[in-house]
Amino acid sequence: MTEYSIQGSKDTRSGFGEALHELGKQNPEVVALCADLTGSLKMEAFAAEFPDRFIQVGIAEANMMGIAAGLTIGGKIPFTGTFANFSTGRVYDQIRQSIAYSNKNVKICASHAGVTLGEDGATHQILEDIGMMKMLPNMTVINPCDFNQTRAATLAIANHNGPVYLRFGRPKWPNFTPKGQPFVIGKSLLLNEGKDVTIFATGHLVWNALQACKILENQNIYAEVINIHTIKPLDEEAILASVLKTGCVVSAEEHMRNGGLGDSIAQLLARKYPAPMEMVAVNDKFGESGKPEELLVKFGLDIPDIVEAAIRVIARKPSRF
């Protein structure tokens, strides 16, 4: 299979912070807002260099979303920063009315998504955010897989006119996508060609999918691995083309099964090309405290879970494959 070398272990939120700082230099219309989590969101560099364009709103996320919407009216490109939970569930109606329905050019940048947030536990580990955001008309939903890709995605969304939800995380994670790889919103990335099963992964679990692919190859199972960094709009063409070839699907994401990437793919396949599918996702449970790697195991999001899902789904393939 295609080999990916790790360029160190880095948190995706730092990719966001680095790109935001760069955007500050590139584009005078870029403004950043933060709800008392500047350090956690890695927004310090932007805040230090562009104090006139950095708005500390305090612990008041609803107000932050409204201010961001208002800033767009004056031509600004606001990037809001707080944890994923407080970026979505806490402020859903503010986003719905003042940002999505009004189609405002706000970039909702959300860190600490999913169980890999770790020790803080379920109050902070949101697993429903992709679902909430993708249900909103006008909203683009992006969940990059590593530092480099989060950096690239942050730069890319500044040039996209419209509301965007950008989801990333807290833990240090293998950084393996090529530095400087352009990020095209809505265009999936084929990471490994295969013929037996397609694994569609998003976020942190893209790396796990690649590791699962390696294990499967040792068992003479050739998995296609596709990085769906943009959950909405979904790259339907690439998904259908791959499933047409492999005939079965595994989705992998650090999110609730309801409303996640797998849910979007299942809807597409049900409409266009029904195929056996397994979903590696959290099944209707809240998270809990623990180390990220322990929690991934406990919630069924680990590498062996993807391997087993692939074997199960291949067994369900109709005989024509």
Binding site: V31, L71, T72, I73, G74, Q97
Partner: peptide, 24 residues
Amino acid sequence: RISSGSLGQGLSVAIGAALAKKMN
């Protein structure tokens, strides 16, 4: 310039627009 109806959101939006005016 923006949707309203779900209450309590307009003042925040107005603040954002006012800040943009200052920046501009």
